[in-house]
Amino acid sequence: MLRLLLTRRWVALTLIFIALVLIMYRLGWWQFHRYQETKRNDHRISLAAHAPPVSVETLSHPGAAIPERDRYRPVTVTGRFDAADQFVVRRRTNAAGNIGFFLITPLVTQDGKAVLVNRGWVAPDNNDGAAYPAVPKTPQGVLTLTGRLQPDETSKLSRIRNVSGLPPRQYMLISSTEQAKNLTEPVLGGYVELVTTKPALGAAYQAESVAGPDSNSQSTSDAAIVGKGVHLPYAIQWWLFALLLPIGWVILFRQGLKDERESAEAAEPAEAAEVAA
């Protein structure tokens, strides 16, 4: 047994098995840590999403960076929509997975500040998908809206590459910093995903609602929930593989011993015949 184990073939094979066990063990822990991180993120998102609404100006101000703990926090804001400065962001999908645009309309508050409001998804032009799309009418008068607070989008957060040189009123990202260059009012940091308004809007004024954090459809914030429910099964899978490899090694080694024994037994009559001769 020891002689077989110390052959070059079995030394190399044993080292490969040990390396694979260690790699799979580490991969299992990596997936388990991802699972724990996802659980923490889910808990944080749940706490924020189910918190009572507060005025957006209690959590944001011009130039503010919205922290992770406030993402999805319900906020309220009162003001008038600024149709002249609204724009769309490209390459966004709705619940059905269709690619279109998000319609962003600044809301000017009663104290003269602007808040970027994502009013929802709109379909592209059937004849030219890159053209500025047909958008819902912009409500007139003072509105009080409730929505989910979101941080400014970046390429890292949204995984969307920012592109310059787009047609007028089209952008790749929702960024209060970028839009502050275009608006005369001070712009609050982050933006708001519209949920409801008072008074309620008619169908002609509504875009398709953006999915919340508990939905399976893609939204601007899906980076926070990608991989949900996946990492723990992967961790268990890697650890099972790590456990099965030593069993496989033992089976192979026992087969190797059996083959060597049979070869030795087959060689004995031949040696005896040579001696007799």
Rank of each mutant, 00 (worst) to 15 (best):
R80N: 11
Y191K: 00
V117N: 03
G248R: 06
L2H: 12
A95F: 06
M1T: 06
L257Q: 15
A200W: 00
I104M: 02
E265Y: 10
I174A: 04
D214W: 02
Q140A: 15
Y191P: 01
V56C: 01
L107Q: 04
M172G: 08
D42N: 15
V195D: 05
V142S: 04
L20Y: 10
P199R: 13
L2E: 07
G28M: 05
R34C: 07
E185Y: 05
L103Y: 07
L15V: 11
R69N: 12
A223P: 11
V142L: 14
V135T: 14
S263E: 10
V115T: 04
W121N: 03
V56L: 11
F253R: 02
G97K: 01
I251A: 09
H231V: 08
V89C: 01
P139S: 11
K137M: 09
A48T: 00
G229N: 10
H61Q: 13
A48V: 06
L145P: 02
G227N: 12
R73I: 00
A264I: 11
V117K: 00
G190M: 10
V11K: 15
N127V: 06
D82R: 01
A123G: 07
R254N: 07
G227A: 08
A95Q: 08
S158Y: 10
P106S: 03
A131F: 04
A123R: 04
R69F: 00
T78C: 04
A272E: 08
A242C: 06
P124Q: 05
V88F: 03
F253E: 09
T93L: 09
S55C: 08
E153N: 06
Y25H: 13
R40V: 12
G256S: 14
Q218F: 13
L232E: 03
H61Y: 13
E37N: 09
T58W: 06
L244N: 05
K156S: 10
F87D: 00
L103C: 05
V89R: 04
R254L: 12
N127S: 08
H33L: 12
W29N: 15
P52E: 06
A123T: 08
A114K: 04
I236D: 02
E68S: 03
R91T: 10
A242N: 03
Y25R: 12
P269S: 02
P74Y: 03
W121F: 05
L116N: 08
I18P: 07
E268Y: 13
T197Y: 01
I16A: 15
N182A: 14
D222R: 11
P62V: 04
P106K: 02
G97I: 01
T78F: 02
V122W: 00
A235W: 05
A270Q: 14
V230P: 10
K137N: 12
I23A: 14
A180L: 10
T196G: 01
N118R: 11
I174V: 14
R254E: 07
Q179I: 07
P269R: 02
Y205N: 13
P136W: 04
S176Q: 05
